[in-house]
Design a binder for these strands. Structure first.
Lengths: 258, 258
DNA sequence: AAGTGGTCTAGACCACCAA
DNA sequence: TGGTGGTCTAGACCACTTA
C-alpha cells in the first residue's frame, strides 16, 4: 500500500501531521501567507484528503490557520486579546470597548432565558408571560467582528420603556441601554463556556454555522434581583478573552505578509 | 439514490441531523442514558456513518453528549460550573477549590513561557538561562478531574528554594507553593482561549489528545514584576468557567439515569 | 470474543469566490 | 470558469472496553 509506515507507536496520522504542519508554520510561513490547497497537501504527505483535513481542523481550532471556502487556507495572525471583564463592573454600553448597538425587539422569554433570569441573587421570580426587551449588539476589534451579543432585559426592569417611540434599529437599542444605565448596578456574574455558532450568529461573525465559539454569559444584578442577562458569542478561533485586573496593554502584532 | 432530499434549502445533512438529535435528547433521553451505536444511528437516519459522526461531534462539543471508545455514547450531564476567578485575588494554593499539587520539577523555560514571564507589569526581564520551578496541579470537582495546570515559578521569585530537600512528588510541589505564598501579591491577569489538549494533559483529563480544552492563563504580579505564570487546561466539554463576583451557589443537577 | 468509538481511504459532488 | 474548501459516501481496519 501507499503507507510505508514504520511507526512503532500507533500515533494517529492526523496527529503527527498536525505536529509537522505546526512546525512548518513556525518556520517557513509568514502570517497571511497562503498554504497549498488541500488536495496538493494531502498528496504531498501521502494521506487522504479527509485525514489532512482533520489536521487542518485542529490547527484552525487552535487559531493557527484560517480557512475560507473559495479562497484558501492562510496562516492566521496571533489571537486578538479582547477585554471581557475588568475590575470595576458596569452596565453594557454603546460604542464603548467596540460594542455597537444594532437593534432591539420585544418578545416573550424562552425557557432558557427565563431560567437565567430567575436564578441568582434576589428573590424576584419572572413570569413567563412578561415580555423582555432583546438588544442585539456587535463587537468590533481591529476592523473585525469578534462577537455578537443578545442582551435580555425584562420589561419590568426598565419600566420607562413601556411606551417608547424610538425608531427600530440602533436608536431603539440605545434607548433600552440608556434606561438600563439609569439603574444602580449591584453586582454581576459571568461564565465562559464552549459552544458552536447558531446560524444567525455565524453569519454576523462571518463564519460557518457550527463554528466553535466562546459563550460568555453575564448576569446583571440590582438590589431587587436580576435586571438583565447578556449572552455574548465570541469567535473562538480569533479571540483570546482577557480579564485584566492589571493593565494588559500588550498590543498583539498584526503584521501581514505582502 | 438513498437520498430522497426535497430540501429547498441546501442545509447540510449533519446540521439538520444535529438539530433532530438535539431535540430527541431533550425529550426522549435522560442524563446518563446510552444512545444506540453509531452504525445503527446512521442506518436509522439513512446517512453514512461519517456524516452521523459529524453531528455527534458537534453535540459533544456543546457538552450534550459524552463518547467513550469501547463503551458507547451517553447523554452528558449539564456542565459543571467551576469557579476560576473571584473578587479577591490570591496565590495558587493546595486543596483549595479542589486543586491538588502533584509534583514539581526544575528546568529552563521554553520560549513561550519566557515570553509570558517577560511581558507584563514590572520591568524585570527574565534571562533564558535562569531555571524555573514547574509545579503540576490537578483540579477535581465532583469526583472528576476537570483541569490540569502547569505553574511556572522562576527560581528567582522564590529564592528560599535554592536548596530544598522536600522529596519529589506532592511534598516538593507544596514546598514551592508555600514559598510563593510568602510573597505579597500585587495583582493578576487572566485570559481564556480555546485550545486542544496536549498528549500529557489529555491523559490526566481522561480525554483523547486533541480534545477541545479551555486554556486559562494567569499571571501573578508582585511589585518587582511577574512572579509566576499558570497555564491551566480545563475540559471544554464538561466545564463552564465561572467568574463569580456575586455568590453563584447554584448547584448543577447531577441526577443520573438508573 | 464481541461490540464500541476512532482512524483512514478514495472517490464524488456542491457552494462559494475571484479573475 | 476554474479553483478553493465543505459535504457526503461506503467501505476497511484499529484501539479500547466489557463480559
Amino acid at each position: 500500500m501507499g503507507t510505508t509506515q514504520l511507526e512503532s507507536v500507533p500515533e494517529p496520522k492526523y496527529w503527527h501531521l498536525k505536529t509537522v504542519l505546526s512546525e512548518a508554520l513556525d518556520q517557513d510561513f509568514a502570517v497571511g501567507e497562503i498554504l497549498p490547497n488541500e488536495r496538493e497537501l494531502a498528496a504531498r504527505f501521502g494521506v487522504a484528503r479527509a485525514t489532512l483535513r482533520q489536521a487542518l481542523e485542529q490547527l484552525e481550532l487552535e487559531g493557527r490557520l484560517q480557512r475560507r471556502r473559495g479562497v484558501g487556507t492562510t496562516v492566521a495572525p496571533p489571537r486578538v486579546g479582547v477585554v471581557v471583564g475588568s475590575a470595576q463592573q458596569d452596565w453594557p454600553g454603546d460604542n464603548a470597548d467596540g460594542w455597537e448597538a444594532v437593534d432591539a425587539t420585544e418578545s416573550l422569554p424562552t425557557a432558557a432565558v427565563l431560567k437565567l433570569l430567575a436564578t441568582g441573587t434576589g428573590a424576584a421570580a419572572f413570569a413567563a408571560d412578561q415580555p423582555v426587551h432583546i438588544v442585539r449588539r456587535t463587537r468590533v476589534t481591529q476592523g473585525q467582528v469578534v462577537a455578537a451579543e443578545l442582551l435580555y432585559v425584562p420589561a419590568a426592569s426598565v419600566p420607562g420603556l413601556s411606551a417608547i417611540d424610538a425608531p427600530a434599529g440602533p436608536p431603539r437599542a440605545r434607548a433600552v441601554l440608556r434606561e438600563l444605565q439609569r439603574l444602580t448596578l449591584d453586582g454581576q456574574d459571568r461564565s465562559v463556556e464552549l459552544g458552536s455558532a447558531r446560524a444567525d450568529d455565524a453569519k454576523e461573525l462571518d463564519r460557518l454555522p457550527g463554528a466553535p465559539v466562546l459563550l460568555v454569559t453575564t448576569r446583571y444584578f440590582t438590589l431587587s434581583g436580576t435586571a438583565a442577562v447578556s449572552v455574548a458569542t465570541y469567535r473562538a478561533d480569533t479571540c483570546r478573552l482577557t480579564f485584566g485586573d492589571s493593565g494588559d496593554v500588550e498590543i498583539t502584532e498584526t503584521r501581514v505578509a505582502s
